[in-house]
């Protein structure tokens, strides 16, 4: 049953994403794109883009987006519920244990080992997004097929973010505007 599948997939996403922010991204890619093929890689990249532009955690945004696409509003509800259920149980449990023992050494220790792995997995998901952005999906990565305009936009954005500490949302809007302006000018 599709509702159960959505619920179960997003339950795993909620259960295994440690560290907030982008930590859920590799898991969503694995479950939603690789495993179930509910979204194509370009759709997933659009989803990450949209999530960055709107408020709300990426996992909740994805649950809504994927749920609606696959099974309408009930699908979105099933996916969202799956996504928050582990949080509800685990947070309450930790809160209770913490209030009792006031000791989180073990949990902190586990997190210290997870954090480097999470960085690595975000990097890996980021690479697939970059490939989708510059070469499109399915196309092989050939130098001749590279979208050089987008490659230049990517480099420009890095400079704006790293060097000038510009707000990511404005950087992305700028990237969109520059690309649109160029395609209008060159009349492609």
């Amino acid at each position: 049953m599709i509702y159960l599948e959505l619920f179960w997939s997003f339950l795993q996403i909620g259960l295994f994403s440690f560290g907030g922010g982008y930590a859920a991204m590799p898991l969503i890619q694995e479950r939603v794109v690789t495993n179930h093929q509910w979204l194509s890689m370009p759709e997933f990249t659009d989803l990450v883009t949209i999530s960055q532009m709107t408020p709300g955690p990426i996992a909740i945004n994805s649950a809504t987006f994927v749920g609606i696409k696959i099974a309408g509003i009930p699908g979105a509800l099933a996916a969202t519920f799956g996504c928050i259920l582990p949080s509800c149980i685990i947070v309450t449990l930790i809160a209770k244990l913490y209030l009792k023992y006031r000791n989180m050494a073990m949990l902190q220790g586990v997190l210290n080992s997870l954090r480097p792995a999470v960085v690595a997995m975000i990097a890996s998901a980021g690479i697939s997004i970059l490939i989708t952005a510059l070469w499109g999906s399915g196309a092989s990565i050939l130098l001749s097929r590279t979208n050089w305009l987008l490659a230049a936009i990517f480099v420009g954005c890095i400079v704006l973010l790293q060097k000038f500490r510009m707000n990511p949302i404005w950087v992305m809007v700028l990237a969109g505007v520059v690309n649109t302006a160029f395609s209008l000018l060159t009349g492609k």
């Binding site: 659009d46 989708t132 954005c157 890095i158 690309n179």
Partner: peptide, 25 residues
């Protein structure tokens, strides 16, 4: 066209987050 440009932008945002997190490690 807007989304295509923003995809390159989001890739840059993720790259920049990764640089910072990896630098921390």
């Amino acid at each position: 066209q807007m989304l295509e440009g923003m995809q390159a932008g989001v890739a840059a945002v993720i790259a920049s987050v990764v640089f910072e997190m990896a630098g921390g490690v």
